[in-house]
Amino acid sequence: MKVTQISSFIENRPGRLHAACEALAAKGVNIHTLMLADTAEFGILRLIVADPEAGKVALEAAGYIAKLTEVVAVEIPDDAGGLAGILAKADAAKLDIEYMYAFSTAVGQRAVVIIRFSDPDQAVDELLARGVNVVAPVELLRG
């Protein structure tokens, strides 16, 4: 049920993010969503792509660091309080969230967030037990 995320170290220099995306494009790796966390000097790029292994190889071949980590994709009801409801359940289960970002797909009524938990396995179990709709990788792009 977990989703594999690629993360990469990007220096704060013109063209570096572009070159990383080019490297993925050249190998036909489609980016579903991304989030760039930035500091004054560097950024950490997190990517959800169609084929994480191929994405890692493509980035490394272009000289980037690429690391695979497991994150959890959660479908939330697209109405007021939808996200709060999920977070309340995570809190109740004492799950530790490192960071999260929205999965911006333009499909139907679905809203998906990608959550990086300290312990993804525990998170999946706890969320499922609480009736949260945890999305499997194959379902990510389905309408």
Binding site: T39, I65, K67
Partner: peptide, 15 residues
Amino acid sequence: EVSAAVFSDQVRAME
């Protein structure tokens, strides 16, 4: 140079 061995996806760890 950051190496794959020390890189983390978390800003806090890198800082």
